[in-house]
Design a protein around this nucleic acid. Structure first.
Length: 596
DNA sequence: GCCGTTTTCGGCCCGACTGTTTTCAGTCG
């Protein structure tokens, strides 16, 4: 999660310091300690404390007040003192001094793949490098390659990494952007001059990766709304402040555009600023073909359809909503998630926009972790939270033994966990926990457990976690071999993540989908580890072949279960319908589907 | 810097991969 954050470090002075802010500071201290060559275990102590604070559900301020911080795991005398200072004063002298002692550019280097504290330290000490630009120059004139332990390939990789990091520096994941947008919407909704207000742009369309937040509002007093908007808290910079359009840059690095129009213009503006560009082009062409003209200001009857100037606009086709606008062009309503000009206009013309899956249709989830492997919560905590969310069932799929780093379960512990889940199920009658496992797909496509172990489980998620550098052909064969195992229920997220990585895809998804259709394997639509935009047309193919997909949060803590909502958006972008998504099955239907 | 004791200090996740070396250090998951 650090990712982009390292470059834009938090301000040194905080008010109302909360747990996650303290966790962020501890995370950064850990990196800084590594960069200064401190004992790595000291750095790890800060990382561990940060993770603990992130998941701690209690009242931190109260613990501080009662001097009971050391009851928390991973908090000793030193961290007790530091947390207390942060909570009481909103700042930490130790952190400020540490930060001042390390050039900011070194932190930014941590985001370059293949660079860690040791190498960065070497650049700094031996080449006096303090920024990405200096590092780039040093690679170009081969000073880096002359350092012991580095060579021509290192220089190439670093240069590629720098280019990439520049390209992606201002991209945010959907969930991050959405949370920021919610706060601003909340604030704007409270303003009396705002009549209608909506998200627009890529965020409204549910893209995985967001560049900025677009908002559209209607008002008869646009200037008032603008003044209010640019005075909201949390703004780093006002980059634009006009009477109907303003832009702000948030502390997080996200920029937000707000456009205010008259209430009459709202549906046209909303459609226009929702995009995508490709969808809009196709819509305008359609309007022209019908003798109309479409823009952000309205849909007009032009007669010839060739007039370009605003003064030449003909009569406005009145629309109160986006639904009216689509209808005026002879189209069924197209949900924002589908507006990519990937066939949605043709489908809407024939009234064939599928009925997409809704959050309220989800009955349960598979693939969640517990503290048996690398999850943060207990089995019963996870089950409790899933129940709170209104689900009927929860699938537990902790890691298998080969995932050492994740404390994967061996055969004995799997057996113990199956028994524990069976016991838990006897204690609750309106909710069910399925005993599964996220089993590693080994390098050659064999699975981490023998069939004797696999068949004792309710279901099996097969995932690739290591040896990610195989050629496309080899990786595809490896995954297909795993999917052909009769006990494998679904293909897990790590494979999905491969597809989302910045590097070119190393798996033939067409073959994987064909295999899923042939073997009846479900494919997991991952919603917690998005990296880059996915080509959703693959999911059209999956749907056409009758492949079932699973919306799984891959939750490692109770708070991540809500990620299921984002999974619904992903499913919508793939045009998946209720019947395509296994999570919409009732408990009885799941039991039937998993019966062997 | 924390923890668990063996109350004073050693251990703290571990294996694969990469690019460099020719046996290994650093990074990653």
């Amino acid at each position: 999660m650090r990712g982009n954050c390292a470059a834009s470090a938090p301000a040194l002075i905080f008010r109302d310091m909360d747990k996650s802010e303290i966790a962020d500071i501890f995370e950064e201290i850990a990196v800084l300690l590594e960069l200064t060559g401190e004992n790595p275990f000291k750095a790890r102590a800060y990382t561990n404390a940060a993770r603990m604070l992130d998941t701690y559900e209690g009242d931190l301020a109260q613990l501080v007040a009662e001097d009971r911080l050391e009851e928390l795991p991973g908090i000793g005398k030193a961290l007790h003192q530091k947390i207390t200072e942060l909570v009481k004063t909103g700042r930490l002298e130790y952190y400020e001094k540490l930060r001042a002692s390390v050039p900011e550019g070194l932190l930014a280097m941590m985001d370059i793949p293949g660079l860690g504290p040791k190498k960065i330290k070497a650049f700094h000490e031996k080449l006096k490098i303090t920024s990405l630009a200096e590092l780039e120059a040093a690679c170009q004139d081969h000073r880096v390659g002359k350092l012991p332990g580095f060579g021509a390939k290192s220089e190439e990789k670093i240069l590629a990494g720098i280019t990439q990091s520049r390209e992606y520096a201002h991209l945010f994941r959907y969930a991050e952007a959405w949370a920021e947008a919610e706060e601003i919407r909340e604030a704007l909704r409270g303003h009396e001059a705002v009549i209608q207000l909506s998200l627009a742009g890529s965020l409204r369309r549910g893209r995985e990766i967001i560049k900025d937040i677009d908002l559209v509002a209607s008002s008869s007093e646009p200037a008032e709304v603008m003044d209010y908007f640019v005075s909201l808290p949390g703004i780093k910079q006002v980059t634009n402040h006009g009477p109907t359009k303003s832009s702000i840059l948030l502390e997080s690095g996200l920029s937000v555009d707000l456009r205010v129009v008259s209430d009459k213009e709202f549906p046209y503006a909303l459609h226009h600023f929702t995009g995508s560009k490709e969808h809009n082009v196709a819509m305008r062409q359609r309007a022209i073909a019908q003798g109309k003209k479409m823009s952000e200001w309205g849909l007009f009857l032009t007669g010839s359809g060739k007039k370009k100037n605003a003064e030449d606009d003909g009569e406005l086709v009145p629309c109160r909503t986006e639904e009216d606008l689509f209808a005026a062009l002879g189209l069924q309503y197209i949900p924002p998630e589908l507006r990519e000009n990937l066939g949605e206009i043709e489908a809407a013309e024939k009234n064939e926009i599928p009925r997409l899956v809704e959050w309220t249709q989800l009955r349960g989830t598979f693939h969640c972790h517990t503290n048996w492997s690398d999850g943060k919560n207990t089995l019963s905590e996870m089950a409790g939270e899933a129940r709170e969310l209104g689900l009927d069932y929860l699938g537990i799929a902790d890691h298998s033994k080969s995932s050492f780093q994740a404390n994967g379960l061996n055969e004995d512990r799997v057996g113990e966990q199956i028994e524990l889940i069976a016991k838990l199920n006897t204690q609750i009658d309106d909710f069910h926990v399925f005993a599964g496992s996220e089993v590693d797909i080994l390098k050659d496509g064999r699975l981490d457990f023998s069939d004797d172990v696999l068949k004792r489980l309710d279901y099996v998620v097969a995932s690739v976690h290591n040896v990610l550098n195989q050629e496309e052909d080899e990786m595809t064969k490896r995954v297909i071999r795993a999917m052909e195992n009769e006990y494998v229920t679904m293909l897990g997220h790590a494979t999905g993540r491969l597809l989302l990585q910045r590097e070119p895809s190393k798996i033939n998804l067409g073959k994987i989908i064909d295999c899923a259709a042939r073997t009846g394997t479900w494919i997991e639509l991952n919603c917690s580890t998005w990296r880059m935009d996915m080509d959703w047309r693959w999911w059209h193919r999956a749907r056409d072949l009758g492949v079932k997909c699973a919306i799984n949060p891959d939750a490692h803590r109770v708070s991540q279960l809500a990620m299921l909502r984002h999974g619904v958006i992903m499913a919508r972008k793939g045009w998946l319908r209720r019947e395509d998504v296994v999570n919409t099955l009732s408990l009885a239907a799941v039991k039937k589907a998993l019966a062997r």
